[in-house]
Nucleic acid binder design. Sequence first.
DNA 1: AATTTATCTGTACGTATGTATAAATTGTCA
DNA 2: TGACAATTTATACATACGTACAGATAAATT
Lengths: 235, 235
Amino acid sequence: MENSAALGRAETQREDGRLVRGEATRERVLDAAERLFAERGFDGVSIRQIAGEAGVTLGVVGFHGGSKLDLFKTILERRVATLNTERRRTLAELRSRRAAATLRDLLAAYMAPYLEIASGGDPQWRAYARLIARIVSDDRWYEHVRDLYDPVAREYLDAILEIAPGVDRERLVTAFVLSVASMLSIVASTIRIAGLSVDESQSGRAVPGNVLDYRETLIDYCAGGIERAVPGLPR
Amino acid sequence: MENSAALGRAETQREDGRLVRGEATRERVLDAAERLFAERGFDGVSIRQIAGEAGVTLGVVGFHGGSKLDLFKTILERRVATLNTERRRTLAELRSRRAAATLRDLLAAYMAPYLEIASGGDPQWRAYARLIARIVSDDRWYEHVRDLYDPVAREYLDAILEIAPGVDRERLVTAFVLSVASMLSIVASTIRIAGLSVDESQSGRAVPGNVLDYRETLIDYCAGGIERAVPGLPR
DNA sequence: AATTTATCTGTACGTATGTATAAATTGTCA
DNA sequence: TGACAATTTATACATACGTACAGATAAATT
């Protein structure tokens, strides 16, 4: 039950701001764990595999990451601030505009940061995006991500309620969470879309596309879905 | 690489059609595995846990289920025929009507059988529904479910294309797969909807609802989403 | 009753698991 | 240089894992 943020670090941070010794190793461990957890899930990965992937010995993983659960939680938490900041930035930018934001604007603002990290050049961010997409279907992890993601989700829900006051909150929440699930499902896998897109019995060029290929369709789908499912939304 | 359908069974089926000896045990094993796999995933369950849950000894699981992977695949396959038959029945029933089916009709016909087993009285069927909802976010399992589910999905896609000929197939497929993901996400978990629905800092009565509570919202959402994302659909 | 087949028990094997820790090493500062 | 703390190595421990199998039991067939 040790505080995972302090594991493997000097208790007193250096004043000059330089990375403390071993910080690079710590990052290697976390990166390796992030990739493997994203690929195979919590139970599908062993600490020895993480050590091997990171190129360190077994004990180092424990030294920098704590217990396996600590390590997993650290990885869930490590990147969320960046994502939340970005989402708050896009929301604030929308609000600063002269014209009132539409539902589609708000949805696109919420999704854009995530879709960009999920399809961008950094493989660690991509792995993180896939990891998040994987764990939402498992109630077991909700308690560990609730406080990380729900506050910003609430801010967006409130922003939607601002442009459509009289609306039933639970219906809006339902449609919003369905939209998030839709978004995550695209990040988790596009393989079925590819499989169903090819004509039957055609020689199998079912090549999954990039997340960005589905971006506009996804946002259209979610906006149309929310507007249909939540009576009273403007449009 | 033994044929899992024959495991633990006499190679020659009895003529009188009575259950062969041990068939009841086999069902207990498969039921227990179904519940545990649905709850914790393939890697989160051990064969010993399955044996314990089924109330049999370790060897019996191997005898009736084969290897762990065999057992998992057997469970994926065991109930799919029933579900497919039901989905084909609802599709045929739609087609036998005088009036042309709408997109919403077709969507409801596809979803109804799954939503009913996911919320019905049989806990094994409920477990199966949750298991399916769990594995779609994992490319690793797609090859094992593709041939089980995609043929019927294609029949529904073709039915939609009948009422909207000129439509872009890939966009339709994308929106359809997003709808399936939305449906599965509701079955996998309603806990976040409950969490976001309560007013902040209100004492926590975030009680997840039954799947049926979200059924109409879900179908509205999906129909509206597809119609928005796929230009050229009637309405 | 004897034989065959199906089912179940109990146990064993080799390996992998998460975690802990003593000892060795490295780098920093007094 | 010596002392000290941070980091890394190497190893050990107890338990759990998937799988295999010899033998016991039960039921049906001959």
